[in-house]
Structure formats: structure tokens, C-alpha cells
């Protein structure tokens, strides 16, 4: 699959970012909200959809469940990190062009 033209949704971008450390579902929601100063509140449905598709693509992985815990934890994979980097480059281009025209 050609990975260079991927445009991530905000939910996916933030999910990949916060998953640079292992988190469970609720943790992802909290971290995302914190990181965006309360602007982006992921809904359960959106997050579930995002996690399922990210697992499918191999951009994140499930960590083995720890004893005594029922909650699954997730972490970004090497491929996922690459994707975030590419997306960041795309966003930077977007911002640069925006600034150049507007200012």
C-alpha cells in the first residue's frame, strides 16, 4: 500500500500521538482532551472505530493484558510512528502555505 498520500483525521492523528506511551481507551480520551486543551473530545464510537481500523492497518498494537486488569492497552507501532511523521510534514506544508498567503 502506498503510504505517502495518507490524510489522517484529527481523531486518528491525536490517537497516534498520545499512544506514544501505552494507554487504555479511557486514557486515550483523557490525554487527547488534555493535549488539545479540552477542544477535542473523542466520543466512544469514534474512538472505537479509530482503534479498530488502526489495529487492522498495524499502526497500533494491543499490549498483553496485565494480570488483575480487564482493560486493554494500546501502543503505536513503528509503522504508526512513520505515518505520524509523514502527516506532520503534510500539515507543516499546509500551515506554511496558509501563513504565506494570509500574512
Amino acid at each position: 500500500m502506498k503510504q505517502t498520500n495518507v490524510v489522517l483525521t484529527e481523531a486518528v492523528f491525536y490517537t497516534l500521538l498520545v499512544l506514544h506511551k501505552p494507554l487504555h481507551g479511557y486514557g486515550i480520551m483523557q490525554e487527547t482532551s488534555e493535549m488539545s486543551n479540552g477542544r477535542l473530545k473523542l466520543s466512544a464510537g469514534t474512538l472505537y472505530g479509530a482503534l479498530s481500523s488502526l489495529l487492522d492497518k498495524g499502526w497500533i498494537e494491543e499490549l498483553p493484558i496485565e494480570k488483575g486488569s480487564r482493560k486493554k492497552e494500546y501502543k503505536v507501532t513503528k509503522l504508526g510512528k512513520e505515518i505520524v511523521k509523514l502527516e506532520l510534514e503534510r500539515l507543516e506544508e499546509l500551515v506554511d502555505n496558509g501563513k504565506r498567503i494570509i500574512n
Binding site: 481507551g25 479511557y26 466512544a44 486493554k72
Partner: peptide
């Protein structure tokens, strides 16, 4: 899996 996930986000 979905119900478990919801449980994890306090639903």
C-alpha cells in the same frame, strides 16, 4: 469486544 471497550470508557 465492543461492550468491553465501552466498559473501559465508563459506559
Amino acid at each position: 469486544a465492543y461492550v468491553d471497550f465501552l466498559d473501559g470508557v465508563n459506559i
